Simulated scan of single mutants.
Amino acid sequence: MLLSQAASAYGKATIPVGEDPKDVAVNPKTNMVYVANFDNVAVIDGSTNTVVSKIPIGDVNGWAIEVNPNSGKVYVAGHLSASILVLDASTNAVVATIHLNGRPTGIAINPETNTIYAASSDVMEIAVIDGATHKVIERIERDGDFRRISMDPSSGLVYAGNVQYGTVDVIRNMSVDSFRKSYDAQIDYPQAIDVNPETGRVYVSDSDSVLVIGSDNDGHALLERVEVGGIPMGIAVNPETNMVYVANFDDDSISVIDGKTNKVILTPWSVWRDRDIFRHRRHGGAHPLQQAQQISKGQKVSF
């Protein structure tokens, strides 16, 4: 069955965005969504969920993307070019290129200080960039393989998905020792991550789902596991609308999760039935379809 036919049959839809979407970012002030593709950035109007523009970036293999809502700048990790491309959202054009020591896999931004953090897994470092000058001002070495990082400006915490150890590391003040502060959230492959500063919830991608992690004064805890499309590689949260956008690499699509209910409101129909059954047998617990029904009814789900 074609994906479009399945979507129509199940009352759901997709947003075609381009070749191999790997990450997604949201500007909460403009409600515009940016998707990093292999050779372009797709711009989605969040009010209509339609693609309104595609910005060419060359064959850099856009691997990660983040936006500073205060400056209106969009930052794209050029994996093949070992650089960060800076886009001006008002003109939809590349205005600067920041060269790094390695191939970037993750970007985080503190909009209050206009500081950008770029993780390169091949050289195991995070480059700290001044957003005003587009210059690297510090390089922090660390252990592990971090593909995505995200910052909560309200708490000053940086969250990094460590695919080497299957953990999410909580980083304070970007110090090397703080990378040891991690917790096990039952994650196979935490490749994408983002945080909602309004709710304090952290969203982490796994093999075929998104984990919702809550935080308070006592620490962090797994709240929900939400099934999405095939191989989620990018997550972005709009704190103004409390919507979570997930870039599904294998489906060339975007899933949209309502942060209030943790329910998917826009997603491709799942064609991974055999894989879902395998995952159910491997991890135990309820089948993903049963989990979705439990979540929709507000019931507690065991993982």
Rank of each mutant, 00 (worst) to 15 (best):
V176K: 15
Q191T: 11
A185E: 07
G161K: 01
D145C: 12
S175Q: 08
M174V: 13
S150T: 13
F146S: 08
Y159S: 11
L157R: 05
V176E: 15
Y159N: 15
G166I: 03
S155W: 01
Y165D: 10
G166Y: 07
A192E: 05
F179N: 01
V136W: 05
D143M: 13
D177P: 12
I149F: 10
S182E: 15
S182R: 13
D145K: 14
I171C: 03
Y159I: 10
V158R: 09
Y159H: 11
Y189G: 06
V136P: 01
S155N: 06
E141D: 12
V136A: 03
V158K: 10
S178L: 09
T133C: 06
I149P: 13
R180P: 07
G144W: 08
D184E: 02
D169Y: 02
D169G: 04
D143T: 12
M151C: 03
D169K: 09
A192Q: 11
R180V: 07
G156Y: 00
V163Y: 05
A185W: 04
R139F: 11
Y159F: 14
S154Y: 12
R172P: 03
I140G: 07
R172D: 02
D143W: 15
I149Y: 10
T133I: 08
H134S: 09
F146L: 15
N173I: 01
Y165S: 13
L157M: 06
I149E: 15
D152N: 07
D188N: 08
A132W: 13
A192N: 08
R147P: 08
A132D: 12
Q186C: 04
R147L: 14
T133Y: 14
H134L: 07
Q191F: 07
S182K: 08
Q186A: 07
I140P: 11
Y165M: 11
M151H: 01
